[in-house]
Each structure stands twice: as C-alpha cells, then as structure tokens.
C-alpha cells in the first residue's frame, strides 16, 4: 500500500501530517510526503505518477472547500478514482459538504492515531 501525504495551501502547520506519516510508516505502509504549500495540481500529478493507493491532505487555512473541489475536478479529468482523506482545522459544518464531494473521512484535532491508521488501511 502506498499513501501520498501533502499539505495544501499556504500555511505551514505540518505537525499533524508528520505524525500521521510516522504512524503509517511504523505500520510498514509506504508513505510519500511531498511537503508544504502544495497546489491541487502538484498533489494530483504526484499521486498519479507515483501510482499511490490513497491521498491524504492536511488543511488548516480555511480554504478547504475550494481546494478540495479542485482536487476532485483534477482527479476526474484524469479519470482517476483515488480515495482521498483529509485532516486539519475544518469546521464541523463543512464536513458533510466535503464528504459529498468525495472525501472519505475528515480527521479533526484529538483523533486517535490507531483509528486513523486502521481507516487508511481499509481504503485500499
């Protein structure tokens, strides 16, 4: 199983995404973490080139609605149905909309690592 992790938008809060990376790596899952300030284009291109099974995107900027929509547009354009999960600072009220868009799950602060890892394993 291969997971792509990225930080989207311009903020630099990468504590959560790095903790998730370490948790997945310790479970023997291959993780490609491409770092901060990535655009939807950069994320989707890397996901396709690296043939990943799952995409995980961390957002703390409040621009999640717009940015995630763009991610799904790009995946659709390329005819790819790679599951996407999200984490970060996302108001509860936005979560149903994101799930409708196609996000498999949104992990908020305070979520237990084990649960996240199990969920991701179930995605591929």
């Amino acid at each position: 199983m291969k997971v792509l992790l990225a930080k989207i938008g311009l903020d630099g809060h990468d504590r959560g995404v790095k903790v998730i990376r370490d948790a997945l790596t310790n479970e023997g899952i291959e993780v490609i973490y491409i770092g901060l300030h990535k655009t939807p284009e950069e994320i989707v291109n890397t996901a396709i080139n690296e043939k990943v099974d799952v995409i995980g995107i961390s957002s703390m900027t409040g621009a999640h609605n717009l940015i995630f929509q763009r991610v799904f547009e790009l995946l659709n354009e390329r005819g790819k149905n790679i599951p996407v999960f999200a984490g970060g600072i996302i108001p509860d009220g936005d979560i149903p909309k994101l799930k409708e868009m196609g996000i498999k799950e949104v992990f908020l602060p305070g979520t237990e690592l084990k649960g996240i890892v199990e969920f991701i394993k179930g995605l591929s």
């Binding site: 938008g9 300030h37 900027t61 717009l66």
Partner: peptide
C-alpha cells in the same frame, strides 16, 4: 493572512481561497 505571510498578492493564483481567511 497566509498570502501576505508568504509574500503573495491577493490576486495570485496561489492565494485563492485564503485571502483574508486566517
């Protein structure tokens, strides 16, 4: 906001969705 912190103008494509948010 994040675009200001990163030195982008509000009309830069990288700023989309983040203008005046944080």
């Amino acid at each position: 906001d994040m675009p200001t912190l990163m030195g982008y103008d509000s009309d830069n494509y990288r700023a989309a969705g983040e203008v005046g948010v944080c």
